[in-house]
Write a protein that binds this DNA or RNA. Sequence first.
DNA 1: GTCTATAGACCGATAGAC
DNA 2: GTCTATCGGTCTATAGAC
Lengths: 215, 215
Amino acid sequence: MASSLSSHAGASTAAAPVKVSFKAQMLQAREDAIVEAVNRLLAEKGFDLMTVDEVAAEVGIAKASLYKHFPSKEDLAAAAMVRVLARAKVLLAGLPADAAPIDQLKAVVRWMMRLQLAGEMPSLPSQNSSLRANLMANRAYLDGLLQVSDHIGGWIEAAQANGSLNPALPPLLVLYTVYSRACDPVLEFMKSSGTHSDEEIVEWVVVTCFDGLRQ
Amino acid sequence: MASSLSSHAGASTAAAPVKVSFKAQMLQAREDAIVEAVNRLLAEKGFDLMTVDEVAAEVGIAKASLYKHFPSKEDLAAAAMVRVLARAKVLLAGLPADAAPIDQLKAVVRWMMRLQLAGEMPSLPSQNSSLRANLMANRAYLDGLLQVSDHIGGWIEAAQANGSLNPALPPLLVLYTVYSRACDPVLEFMKSSGTHSDEEIVEWVVVTCFDGLRQ
DNA sequence: GTCTATAGACCGATAGAC
DNA sequence: GTCTATCGGTCTATAGAC
């Protein structure tokens, strides 16, 4: 349909999409910069302590320009969550399909913990109700969360079926436990103790998560 | 020394301590009410979303009266943490001394999770630096934390020594992992799913914590 | 009559929103 | 760049105990 349209309208409209696309690219680029800044600030200080002024200053734009892109602080946070969910989808798609489900799950947990240790994991307070309401009304967020959860959920069921994961545990509990590693305070605690490398910490937490504190 | 003083001064001063003690008791009772309200609000909304006006309203006193007892919002939070640490000490002291160290640890984890599910576990954001600085300057908090950590730390080392806990894990990691159950979002998630009782949830998280997701 | 504690108005700063 | 709401923190007039 698009090709028939351009062949009919000729050169004048052939240039127009390029121009619009360029403008859209600029807009998109700025939006990306905003969301990345929000992502970083959410990881560093959390939602409540992050101010919209900070975000604008970090991006280097006026606060008013921010509100052209996102109507509220809550929407900024939602955009950051959508971004990290998109990154998660890329990771999931890139994992070797023939690996054991339990190893897929471990890879996901490792990725989330490395992201947190790198200061790139935005974490939102589950207590803020206005934020929760906003997220639950955000289609992009819900869609992304559902897709990622379905993908991981498939591995959980497969791992329980082949006996590598405790089948007595509700799959939802396992999913939540995996997700919780994204905001596990143990990582920050161990990092601040300063006596271990990030990779050591990640491996220890993976062990405690899948094999428990017991030996 | 107090008895020799009263025997010397006679009846007139014998009444005075009673009066002072009554006044002090009233003051103490109100302080307890304040700290309990702070504890509940911290558990419900967290530090940032809790307002001093709310605390005063909950207790039923004026905000200025609050500031007669505690000089700042941070001190209110610290008092709530001291309170929960005191409750923890009572629990630790009441556990059967002859039980296996691993069972002592499980009992502690169960207690923390039940407290969280009951909405009585105050949790502070680790990101708020002014709050952290205030806590680190609070002797009562540091003392309480140290005592509780020493007590639990002894069990961790004993459990590692008798092989019921993985000896390859740094004791500090184990301690942090235990403490983290106090703010484990899995509990709230599972509770909000509404299909399981609190005790079921607690037992599942205990299993995943000590035995891992793996079977 | 004095003195303390209280209640509720008040202030300055700051953050979100436009 | 402005506006408004809110929040942490303070001030003052008053009520009640001794």
